[in-house]
Design a protein around this nucleic acid. Sequence first.
RNA 1: GCGAGCGUAGCCAAGGGGUUAAGGCAGUGGAUUGUGAUUCCACCACUCGCGGGUUCAAAUCCCGUCGUUCGCCCCA
Length: 439
Amino acid sequence: MGTLQKLTGTEDILPITQFVGQEIKVADVGIWQRVEAIAREILHRAAYREIRTPIFEQTALFERGIGEATDVVGKEMYTFKDRGDRALTLRPENTAGVARAYIQHSLYAQGGAQRLWYSGPMFRYERPQKGRQRQFSQLGVEVIGSRDPRADAEVIAIATDILQAVGLKNLSFYLNSVGNQSDRQAYREALVEYLTPYKDELDADSRDRLSRNPLRILDSKDAKTQEIVQSAPSILAYLCDDSRQHFDTVQQLLTDLNIVYQLNPCLVRGLDYYTHTAFEIQSADLGAQATVCGGGRYDGLITELGGPDTAAVGWAMGLERLTLLLQQLQESQPPELDFYLVSRGEQAEGQTLAIAQRLRQAGFSVEIDLSSSAFGKQFKRADRSGAVGCLILGDSEAEHGTLQLKWLRTEEQQELSQADLPSAIPQLRQHIQQQRQSL
RNA sequence: GCGAGCGUAGCCAAGGGGUUAAGGCAGUGGAUUGUGAUUCCACCACUCGCGGGUUCAAAUCCCGUCGUUCGCCCCA
């Protein structure tokens, strides 16, 4: 193909929806704007403030923060050298970046917990499939500076609020606790001890992980491995009293909030920094990439990155997955347009911009037809634009300083004086409102 | 990184060795030179993702490559 095309695993989000039959092939920006507006409102009400951090960071930040043994760091990062020979990486997730900013600007000096949210592109070098891209968008929240179980529950409640407000149903919420460092160490040994005799029956990947990252074997999709894992010891049995109590309280709070969850002791998240609470919200309608939202507590991360001992919880939502689910539910609305301005003739065309600007400054939306084609054609486009009114400017109007206004839905037509336009504005506004409502 | 399927116009497609590459939607111009519908007419792929091979002959068969979709791994 001679033309340049988007890179694999990236998407264009267009102003128009593209259909194949009834099925939406590519959803338009409208759905994104709706989701973002709803999320923003809910986050605002919960006193979360937006933070924007760079899209690339030093490679070392992710290596240290996410963990060198993880797949994300091991094989999925977009890493490169810049012209100054610095090792950079396009962020594969944003918790590490937010933690870095928190430390760098000493946000802990503000006192109390910092409630933060972010939204933006993330990058992972993977083979794309349904619900998985190389550039994708995450909306996330972080509460940094509290180990209170209410923080865990609040963050979860906000996630379920957003998903519900946006209109998603049929989601499953899985909850687990992976305990603290020493709980996990003890459990890890027990698990390895249990699994070692079955070593030859595990699938190849799991056998590999037995020494490197045995907890990951728990959520293997391999049938035989699953069977073996069924009777493995549960992490929940290895929680110390503090961990146990924290987890119990989180569960109690969720129950009080009527948030339905399923305990899943096999839920292990792929990033090293998680401690205690871990959770995922999944949909059955997404194919193999079922997780819409995932997160948990990460009490060790800030220290790991060189900051003070600071507890934190957070989650991230995959916005492509969310919109993918949403576009199955609703059709998109064309943008509302007040006036479509048609014109013909040199003098008339010369007056259109000034008229449009005057109306726009008064708060109306106005689209100018730039084609100079026959009025018949321009009217056809006016009709399709969905505008309430069509402003007509031809030779005689230009001559007399007037303009025709045809209300497209009622087919009434009236004449206006250009000079009197400002005084006609309240009436126009009222008329448009009426016509919209009568639909 | 691995596996499988699929690439014919802006979109949906027919054609599976024989040469003008069906049809539909959308678009543009006109019938209608100042009023939205319908209808009608015309235009809209020097070539079937790209490169090579087989053949008298390739969109069609073979190889490679790129893209895409779904899955594995992993995650959002």
